[in-house]
Write a protein that binds this DNA or RNA. Structure first.
Length: 565
RNA sequence: CGGGGCGUGGCGCAGUCUGGUUUAGCGCGCUUGCUUUGGGAGCAAGAGGUCGUCGGUUCAAAUCCGACCGCCCCGACCA
């Protein structure tokens, strides 16, 4: 490839409001270009990287016997109505009508389609298990696309689906898929974590996410260095520290004029946040819910929803609270209220002598004791884990880290197959729903995730397997231009992927551009060649220079590329 | 859903508050020529803009007012 003829450009400036390094570098290096909110064009260099990633994914999927297929990007609404997701999926599902007025959706995912297909074809236990996958575009009408290709509306995804007779078969495939993912992400040069996850709108019980570690990532995970426990923050648990058993003191009112927030109360009474009870009032389909957590904790609504088994859960508006509790927000507490369902976090139950709102203007109670002063209807884990909490498995101190979700595994069970009538017959001729799993990889966000972990002040440093090219031949000086062409043509005949920077610009520009784009090796033909007859190979990451004669160049490079892990 | 910001050649920005010397500037990139050429070169000459759209105010609008469209950022309820 001659660079002078390649659709290639680099930019010195990118919009001032781009935050992420990967976003900046992808724009600067000319990998992608924004087209509209959450829509990106992949230019040739960027598309090469994407294809490298796709090849790795294909190889590893094929290795575990998954079969590639292609489903349509546009799906009829009917299927989505059958599974209920036409209503459940919300505004992220982009819907439109064809000329006849029939409704369709742009696929945000493909469970419905693949399940119906499987139901038509996989009618016998003899064919099971089967794993299929596809690599194609998805569309989710995100409320706020951000971070370049990390959260875009249109994106590439690898989605695989497994169909099994029973949970045991399913479990085996789930494990195989997990190790395939581990190989894929390692080959991409990523440092990642596997964590327990929530399944969200896809549904299902067991779910794991692969998180690429990145300080700016939008997902937060909890992990234990000591035993290896790790989970998404939303579902992470922690052990409740046993409080020293203080003696229960007598309940007392204190005057707290205009002291409303937990922070204000802590300051005003000069006590730690953990000694305050935070009472949050929710509105649900079955009336008001009083939710109590410690002042230093936050209510985890996902956990709360699961615990109380309610669908609708919204913070109650101020007026509604005033009407029902008779006090303004800020002085609400659990003591003496009976027209709500009281849900209390387990950590609260371990404590003694708390401060809480007294349900009276400008007044708090001190020495509030759970059990004595109020009786919860439901007790459970409804809080977010905090850094330093004790690991639920081994008790060591937990850490909270950030990252980017790059892969997700779900055990779906029969959620889709039952609703869509995807059944098979067992040995005895008995009908069962197919037991399903689904497994995604965010293909088009992977370049960004990789760049987040592999860059320096000069630009991108691609790991070997995903680099757009292995090397670039750089002529440094007019006298060597013709010879550099020879060098290029020689390399082109080898398996090495080479590009020749034949542009009429100074050598400095070529070096800078090569560094920015992240080509692993520069093959420099210049003054060293004129002086010593040697060609230089310069490594992108370390800057190390290896000299080779024209004769040895290809072999030397092949060797370096192989070692370049 | 709430708050904030932005829209000026391909890209990044200034100019808008205080309307009129602005023929609408600057940097990057682009074209041509000469000199350069191992880490984003210099000089010279050029091309390229209905100042997001529509409407209003005014003798006069990139600048003031209104509506719309597009884009970006922050927050999403913790009492």
């Amino acid at each position: 490839m001659r660079l002078s003829k390649y659709l290639f450009f680099t930019a010195k400036e990118v919009p001032a409001d781009t935050e992420l390094i990967s976003h900046k570098l992808m724009l600067k290096a000319g990998l992608v270009r924004p087209v509209a909110s959450g829509l990106y064009a992949f230019l040739p260099i960027g598309y090469r990287v994407l294809n490298k990633i796709i090849s790795i994914v294909k190889e590893e999927m094929d290795r575990i016997g998954a079969q590639q297929l292609l489903l349509p990007f546009v799906q009829p609404a009917e299927l989505w109505k059958k599974t209920g997701r036409w209503d459940e999926y919300g505004q992220e599902l982009l819907r439109f009508q064809d000329r006849k007025g029939s409704w369709f959706v742009l696929s945000p995912t493909h469970e419905e389609l693949i399940t119906r297909l499987a139901g038509d074809i996989l009618t016998s236990y003899r064919k099971l298990p089967v794993v299929v996958y596809q690599i194609q575009i998805k569309f989710r009408d995100e409320p706020r696309p951000r971070g370049g290709v990390i959260r875009s509306r249109e994106f590439w995804m690898k989605d695989a689906y497994s169909f099994c007779q029973d949970d045991e078969q399913m479990g085996k495939i789930y494990k195989e898929m997990q190790s395939a993912y581990e190989r894929i992400f390692s080959r991409c040069g990523l440092s990642y974590k596997v964590v327990e996850a929530e399944s969200g709108p896809i549904g299902g019980d067991v779910s794991h996410e692969f998180i690429s570690l990145a300080p700016n990532g939008e997902d937060r995970i909890v992990e234990c260095d000591s035993c290896g426990y790790s989970a998404k923050l939303e579902r992470a648990r922690s052990r409740v520290k046993m409080e020293s058993k203080e003696r229960e003191k007598a309940l007392e009112e204190v005057n707290t004029p205009d002291v409303k927030t937990v922070d204000e109360v802590a300051n005003f009474l000069n006590i730690p946040l953990a000694k305050i009870l935070k009472t949050v009032v929710y509105q649900t389909e079955r009336g008001l819910l009083g939710v109590v957590v410690r002042g230093d904790h936050q209510v985890n609504e996902d956990k709360l929803k699961k615990l109380v088994k309610l669908e609708e859960l919204n913070l109650a508006p101020d007026e509604l609270i005033y009407e029902n509790i008779g006090v303004e927000v800020g002085f609400v507490g659990p003591v003496g209220v009976d027209n709500w369902c009281l849900v209390v976090d387990e950590a609260v139950m371990q404590g003694r002598n708390f401060v809480a709102g007294a349900n009276k203007k400008d007044t708090h109670f001190i020495n509030v004791n759970p059990g004595r002063d109020f009786s919860p209807e439901i007790i459970g884990d409804i809080r977010y884990v905090l850094p330093g909490d004790e690991c639920p498995v081994c008790g060591a101190s937990l850490k909270v880290k950030r990252g980017i979700e790059i892969g997700h595994l779900f055990k779906l069970g029969d959620r889709y197959s039952s609703k869509l009538g995807a059944f098979f017959l067992d040995q005895k001729g008995k009908k069962h729903p197919l037991i399903m799993g689904c497994y995604g990889i965010g293909i088009s966000r992977l370049p960004a995730a990789i760049i987040e972990q592999n860059n320096d002040k000069d630009g991108i440093i691609w790991p070997r397997e995903v680099a757009p090219f292995d090397c670039v031949v750089i002529p440094a000086g007019d006298e060597v231009f013709d010879f550099s062409r020879e060098v290029y043509l020689n390399l082109k005949d080898s398996p090495i992927e080479v590009v020749w920077d034949d542009r009429d610009v100074s050598a400095g520009v070529k070096f800078k551009d090569s560094d920015l784009v992240g080509i692993p090796f520069k093959v420099i033909v210049g003054r060293t060649f004129l002086k010593e007859g040697k060609i230089e190979i310069k490594k992108r990451g370390s800057g190390e220079i290896i000299k080779a004669s024209k004769k040895d160049l290809t072999a030397k490079l092949m060797e370096l590329i192989q070692d370049g892990e």
